[in-house]
Write a protein that binds this DNA or RNA. Structure first.
Lengths: 222, 222
DNA sequence: TATACCATGTAATAAGTTACATGATTTG
DNA sequence: CAAATCATGTAACTTATTACATGGTATA
């Protein structure tokens, strides 16, 4: 149901066609709540049926028309009421941490690849979020700029501050994930050293990892 | 597809009935990858059909039987191959951050409630993860203990270290979310003060939030 | 012998993914 | 006039959620 409110949020800034909306979505709120076009179009239909938005045919070219959607009074109410509802937190489902929990079944090099991919993944996301944040802080982000013009009922500073707050949270999260993966790489190195030492001793399976080699601590890797 | 590997991971420790497996799931790997029983049972059927696990009827009571599942050689291979595959990262879909991005549409008290719920949510998760972590570190966690007995091919220290690594990541994440929400509460306080100051001046909408009141910085709130 | 727990699901629905499909208009 | 982009989807599938259903076994 969040998709509906992500779309409503965009339409509080200005009326848009489905196409415009989908595009605007992908470069703004889509970084917080992803949805493909094929989910957006049907949802817009349902939203019209439910009265939270209106569709209007506007001319397109000489003969054609396109459908422009705008939020209704009822839609604004629904958006306000949404803010009164508790957030429904999704159940934990984390593919990267699930993998990491059973790294003993992986070749150490495969585990390292997974962790480096993790770092790469969050470095890319971080860059995207940072770009959003820069655009928001400078009030240059196109959708935000439009919103700041059209929204007369809220303080521009508040509008900006909440978006900054949101994206800062994502950036901190990306940093955390990168730091976590780096600790994982250090752990693999330590386990490797311990394993080799054990083998050199002819001892087979290793003992007391974390007391051999350097200590692995959470504070170290940052 | 991760559910399959979460179940395989449990079955690398010992054979179990569907019921045992579901129970074990909820108190261990289910904290990393949630699934309800109604998803587990059908998946087990599919896994038998695909040959990664075997089912065997074992006596239950005088006349009845129950189905015990055990991992096959093919299942162990599949688990190892899974470790060679890159993680498929889900698209970003964050209901709490989505809400926060548009807090200007919320009553400040409603926004505060959302943030306090966020803190409460992650405090509870943190406690759960911490409990898991304590059990793992002490090697008292029942499924882990069983695994440490039965798994002769991996170093017990490595088995433990990767699980510790995984859960530490979650705990750090919980701390981050709590700190984020606390910054949000501070932001709301600052915007409120600025708003009141503005109104007292008869200025209507507020100006220059972030320069009035105390500064809100990321380092401050922790 | 009642209550807790063991055991195993199904049905209906909702949500999300992937791939494909089609034509119109604007612009270089 | 060709290419880009605007415009709007549909179909098939997978995954996940919610709620319900049913009966057996162990134990106090």
């Amino acid at each position: 149901m969040s998709l509906r409110y992500a779309l409503l949020a965009l339409l509080t800034a200005q009326p848009m066609t489905g196409y415009d909306l989908a595009k605007a979505f992908h470069v703004s709120v889509g970084h917080v709540w992803h949805a493909p076009d094929s989910q957006i179009y049907p949802e817009l239909k349902r939203m019209v049926a439910d009265g939270v938005i209106e569709d209007r045919a506007v001319p397109w070219g000489a003969t054609s028309t396109k459908t422009q959607y705008s939020i209704t009074e009822q839609g604004i109410d629904a958006f306000g009421q949404w803010m009164e509802q508790p957030v429904e937190y999704p159940h934990e489902r984390d593919p990267a941490h699930l993998r990491a929990a059973y790294f003993e079944w992986a070749d150490p090099d495969a585990a390292r690849r997974r962790l480096r991919e993790h770092i790469e993944h969050y470095a890319q996301r971080r860059a995207q979020w940072q770009a959003q944040l820069d655009g928001i802080r400078a009030r240059q982000h196109p959708i935000l700029a439009r919103r700041l013009e059209s929204d007369t009922r809220h303080s521009p500073d508040a509008i900006v501050a909440f978006k900054v707050f949101t994206y800062e949270g994502f950036i901190d999260r990306a940093d955390l994930e990168i730091a976590w993966a780096e600790r994982g790489l250090a752990l693999l190195d330590d386990l490797g050293e311990a394993g080799e030492a054990g083998e050199a001793d002819g001892a087979g399976r290793v003992g007391r990892v974390g007391r051999v080699g350097r200590e692995i601590t959470r504070s170290e890797s940052r």
